[in-house]
Amino acid sequence: MTVLDVANVTFGYTEVDVLENVSLTLDDGEFLGLVGPNGSGKSTLLSIALGLRRPDSGTATLFGEPAHAFDDGHRIGFVGQGVASNDRSVPITVEEIVRLGRFPHAGFGRFGPADHEAVDRAMETTGVAELADRRIQSLSGGQRQRAFIARALAGEADLLALDEPTVGVDAESREEFYSLLNGLSADGVAILLIEHDIGVVTEHADTVACVNCTIHYHGDPSGFGADVLADAYGTAQQVVHHDHCPDHA
């Protein structure tokens, strides 16, 4: 089943278009990596796909409904930029963060047994159960990121959208993180990941899309090569396949 469908989308914050005639689809259990240079419109495309912004032209649908009118919030899990950085001093624990994922389910009412079970299960799956009572800013970048993934899982989301979640995370935690995503995708969760590290995306994702105002590539990671990079990024680039080394594409 098609989870997310963006068709012929054009959008601009000003008169200059950030996205031009962009089309993208994501199916059940598919792991799509979205790459592109800084300012290429990746996050804008994600906002449109998730219904937070409406395109100037074209359509965006979520689970078959117009994205902006889709209101089943618990079906989408979202992890944004900077979740791994330690720039806030809000006194909130890992468990409180994960519980947020159940809020669309619980509505105005109190948490029931199903909510508590989902929170516990999500923390077990992501390996943060033993950190449940720790304040979020006391954790490492990798642990923090897993807590935010757990928040998305607690909602039992069918679609997981991640906007550069690995910034500030060490290489080992990143590997664990991608294994976790591959596991979730195998369980049928559709994953849309924005990532600046092209090497990692081509290694783990089922499909890769490269955007820079328009879609420069959309398909199997094996076909994503230097010609696409030169086309989208404009300069001589290469994909760095690496294990545990700093990321640069």
């Binding site: 937070l52 919030g73 947020l100 994922g101």
Partner: peptide, 22 residues
Amino acid sequence: VASYKQLLYSTIDERAARVARM
């Protein structure tokens, strides 16, 4: 008390709260 969930979610992570349709 009645709006605690909405207040908390949008305080902690406004963008995620929007995606969750709060």
